[in-house]
Simulated scan of single mutants.
Amino acid sequence: MKITSFFFLLLTSFFTLASCQDHTLIKPSAMLRLDYPQPKYHTINTDCPYTFSVNEITTLIQKKNCGVNITYPNMKATLYLTYQDVRNNNLDSLLQDAQKLAYDHTIKANSIPEQPFVNPDKKVYGMFYMINGNAATQAEFYVTDSINHFLNGALYFDAKPNFDSIYPAVVYLREDIRKLMETITWK
């Protein structure tokens, strides 16, 4: 009878030890799904010499000298707009500064494709820079009428740049920037 108790104790100990081991559970691969709302745009009218359309999910902060910060709270991103008058033949220096701002990110960027923008009916001409890679900004642009007005913008996220992680938001926000460029009107 003592042998049976010994074997029972031995089997109980074995099953107890075997059940305490960590088992590896293989999970199916999955992709992160980020859904952003279908953009709805409305026109912004300010005291500044320009108007444009923005996504309804944004918050606008009017700055001095007709600058505007367009924030995307859910994406933790901000599009910073800076306005300057074209005067005393300073258009060349404004264009060089805007191009330099975009290309200062070549250290971290994988590529910086440019897309020219021309709307002769509204007298809006500009350039859109898509900055791909772990750079501080993911998009920059400028628009001008070449005579009186110059507006440039830069998109920044409130996070360390990791292009793979923020890419879906970057694609969404680049479309908003294109819409802004397409709808800008000088007063």
Rank of each mutant, 00 (worst) to 15 (best):
L155T: 00
N152K: 09
I166C: 00
E114Q: 11
I147E: 09
K123T: 13
I107R: 05
H105V: 03
A139W: 00
N88A: 13
K122P: 04
S165Y: 12
Y103D: 02
A102K: 00
F117Q: 03
D145L: 04
H105S: 07
K108C: 07
G153E: 11
K100C: 08
I147R: 05
K122E: 15
L155Q: 03
Y125F: 15
S111Q: 08
L151H: 10
F117C: 05
D85N: 13
V124R: 00
R87K: 14
D104E: 14
I112L: 02
Q115T: 13
E114W: 00
N134Y: 08
D92H: 06
F163Q: 01
S93C: 01
F117K: 02
A109M: 02
F157Q: 02
Y167S: 15
A102H: 03
N90W: 05
T106G: 03
K160Q: 11
K100F: 13
S146C: 05
H149S: 06
D85V: 12
P113V: 05
G133K: 01
G153Q: 03
Q84K: 06
Q138W: 00
G133F: 01
N152G: 03
L101P: 00
R87T: 15
N88R: 12
V86S: 07
Q99K: 07
T82R: 06
T82D: 14
G126F: 03
D85E: 14
L91W: 10
T144S: 08
N119D: 15
T137D: 03
T82E: 14
F150H: 09
K160W: 08
T137C: 02
T106V: 11
N132P: 00
A135S: 11
H149K: 06
I107A: 12
T144D: 09
N89A: 14
G133A: 04
K108L: 14
T144P: 09
Y129V: 11
S111M: 06
A159V: 13
I107L: 10
L91D: 10
T106F: 10
P161E: 08
V118W: 03
T82N: 13
H105C: 02
F163W: 06
V118Q: 08
D85Y: 02
K108R: 13
L81H: 04
Y83D: 02
P116N: 14
K123I: 06
E140I: 10
L81M: 07
P116W: 01
N152M: 04
L81G: 07
Q96K: 11
V143N: 08
D121M: 09
Y103E: 09
G126A: 10
L155M: 03
A136M: 14
E140R: 14
Q115W: 08
N162S: 05
Y83S: 01
Y167T: 11
Q96A: 15
D97N: 10
Q96I: 06
F163Y: 15
A159E: 15
N110S: 14
N110Y: 11
Q99S: 13
Q138R: 10
N162L: 09
D92P: 06
N148E: 07
Y156M: 14
Q96Y: 07
G126D: 11
V118L: 03
N134S: 13
L94D: 15
V143L: 12
H149E: 10
T144R: 01
F117G: 05
I112F: 05
D145F: 06
G153N: 01
E140Q: 15
F157T: 03
H149Q: 08
N110K: 04
A139Y: 00
I131E: 09
Q84M: 09
E114P: 00
L94K: 04
T137F: 05
N152W: 06
N152A: 01
Y142T: 02
S146M: 07
A139I: 01
